[in-house]
Design a protein around this nucleic acid. Structure first.
Lengths: 141, 141
DNA sequence: TTATAATGATACCATATTCGTATCATTTGT
DNA sequence: ACAAATGATACGAATATGGTATCATTATAA
């Protein structure tokens, strides 16, 4: 079981790269050649991040993307939520009609606790925190 | 994103039911009629748990399954590992040749910490702990 | 003003995973 | 011998994941 899929992984790397360029607008072409990601796939991801307000986009020649927020205001949690769907560790797969005591389900309670912790951790990880730890070019950080 | 899939969920419910029957051997037929699970799917799951040494099986008329270990020695972590594959939150999707600084990958480090916590929690949840919290018939607990 | 370089939108596709079914073989108790 | 149970295994449908392709739209710059 993975916590982070390819969408999110690419997104982290792309956003980190963009963050490192300071105020510059970065085109998909630059990202692709620097980070070796499949172009159409990356484009789709960046378009989603733009719609969600994590990136600003600029059309036309010389256009591209820049961060829409400060680097320490872009959370890993938001990327996951946007690109992988909601974190719902404890989503019960059974109809209420079947499970006779949903409210007191011991498993659900335990899983909920774990989820809360994970979410809080994911909300503490920002693009900035990933960038600030001695990262090198091209790495996720 | 879910932490627990249907395999594991069914398994928890089935094992909990079996645990509640004390020393009795429980047949798939009984489980199916009590817990309303698809029979062939449940059988497959139980066969896997048997192979993994979490259940004992008894063939022939009057046969079925019983726990192979004490209820407080069967961990949710083991069920997940057996039925969903290893918990590898931080599995890097990139070839080493691409990521220039795997050892110092900030993202990887963070995810590893989260994984450690989750694993430790999953290792603290047992069938017994799920059963002992005021559970009712048919519930997961 | 027109060519060009960029993103926006969207439809499509291949593969893997998840969830589940079906069938026959084997074992065991009566 | 027969019936009731599991063992083994092949198959299939639905969904999720990872990725491609294409055309429309916008902005810059010659």
């Amino acid at each position: 079981m993975r916590l982070i899929n390819r969408n999110t992984d690419y997104a982290v790397r792309a956003l980190s790269y963009i963050a490192r360029q300071k105020e510059k607008v970065v085109s998909v072409s630059e990202l692709v050649s620097e980070l070796k990601m499949p172009r159409p796939f990356l484009r789709k991801i960046l378009q989603v991040l733009n719609k969600e307000g994590l990136l600003k986009s600029y059309k036309g020649s010389g256009g591209g993307f820049s961060l829409a927020k400060a680097r320490d205001k872009i959370f890993l949690f938001d990327l996951i939520k946007t690109l992988q769907g909601p974190v719902k560790f404890n989503e019960c797969i059974f109809r209420k009609s079947f499970c006779p005591d949903v409210k007191n389900c011991a498993l659900k309670k335990k899983i909920e606790e774990i989820e809360k912790y994970v979410v809080s951790q994911l909300q503490s990880i920002t693009i900035a925190s990933l960038c600030d730890n001695g990262c090198k070019e091209g790495a996720a950080c």
